[in-house]
């Protein structure tokens, strides 16, 4: 049964104002609220800090990086030309979140800070070695996304910190692929997502491979061993099949084989193989 107890609500207009509140008291930042509101249903009293008026919905580009404001909505990112040019997997992943209504409200910052194992944008951001800009009264610090989440729903962010933006490295690759496995076409909590970026030379050898998975490990992560395995290899179907098998070994190693069904394991192998195949052909795939 729903019982939401909001004991205070602040709506700061500047970052300075916001971080002052956060330094003073325990506030829960609220962006789109699509995760927060659900948590509030447990009835715990809470003080909310609205971060929607801090002008954190920018997407900018410089020579090496793309900066995405934490309050950018998924809808915004799914149709942003800078995103689709330089970090296409982020745009595709954002376009796959929930439903139109959820994408209109839900933000990338909220997706990251909520730190769910099945957050859709995190695996895509990992491909671009994303870093997070955290602000507080004590100053600014940068955290690597792959170190930010410590376990499901837990991060290294302090209560007095605000997520300001996400910085992605431009990495021009020859091909991308994003696959999402779920139960239906919309409002589809991921059962598995695979993000792949491949760089292939003229001799059809892998120069670089970036691969990450969501809903596979307790925390979305890159599959570095798999990437290493692929680097320098000549592309042939058998290679991708082997990569699939290796992915399964990694998964078992990391998650201690806690699958409820024997289903996910070979499906992971199959999806990795498929995603690599698509990326090797340069296809940006969204299922």
């Amino acid at each position: 049964m729903t019982m939401i107890r909001v004991t205070a609500y602040e709506n700061p207009k500047s970052i300075e104002e916001a971080t002052t509140f956060l330094a003073k008291d325990t506030y829960v930042p609220i962006a789109g609220g699509t995760d927060v509101i659900l948590e509030l249903r447990n009835g715990m009293p809470v003080k909310l800090l609205d971060i929607n008026n801090l002008k954190l919905n920018h997407v900018t580009s410089n020579k090496d990086n793309i900066e995405i404001g934490a309050a950018c909505t998924h809808t915004q990112l799914a149709s942003n030309p800078i995103v689709s040019q330089f970090v296409p997997l982020v745009g595709i992943a954002a376009g796959k979140v929930g439903s139109k209504q959820i994408r209109n409200r839900g933000t990338i910052g909220g997706n990251i800070v909520n730190a769910s194992p099945c957050a859709d944008t995190i695996p895509a951001l990992l491909i671009y070695d994303a870093e997070l800009v955290l602000l507080s009264k004590k100053g600014r610090r940068i955290a690597r996304l792959d170190e930010f989440i410590t376990s499901p729903y837990a991060t290294i962010k302090r209560n007095d910190e605000l997520l300001h933006s996400i910085i992605c490295k431009k990495n021009n690759k020859t091909g991308y692929s994003y696959l999402k496995l779920g139960r239906r076409q919309a409002v589809n909590i991921s059962r598995m997502t695979i993000s792949v970026a491949l760089d292939i030379d003229d001799d059809n050898a892998v120069i670089d491979a970036c691969i990450s998975a969501g809903s596979v490990f307790p925390v979305p992560s890159r599959m570095k061993d798999l990437e290493k395995f692929l680097r320098g290899e000549k592309i042939k179907p058998k290679l991708f099949k082997e990569a699939g098998k290796l992915a399964v070994d990694l998964m078992i190693k990391h998650s201690g084989y806690r699958w409820s069904t024997p289903y996910k394991e070979p499906v992971l192998a199959g999806l990795i193989e498929r995603a690599l195949m698509q990326a090797s052909k340069g296809i940006v795939q969204d299922n």
Binding site: S99, R183, R184, Q185, A186, V187, I189
Partner: peptide, 11 residues
């Protein structure tokens, strides 16, 4: 409805 999955208009 987050765990009992029914078709949406998209399906």
């Amino acid at each position: 409805f987050s765990t009992y999955i029914i078709p949406t208009a998209q399906d």
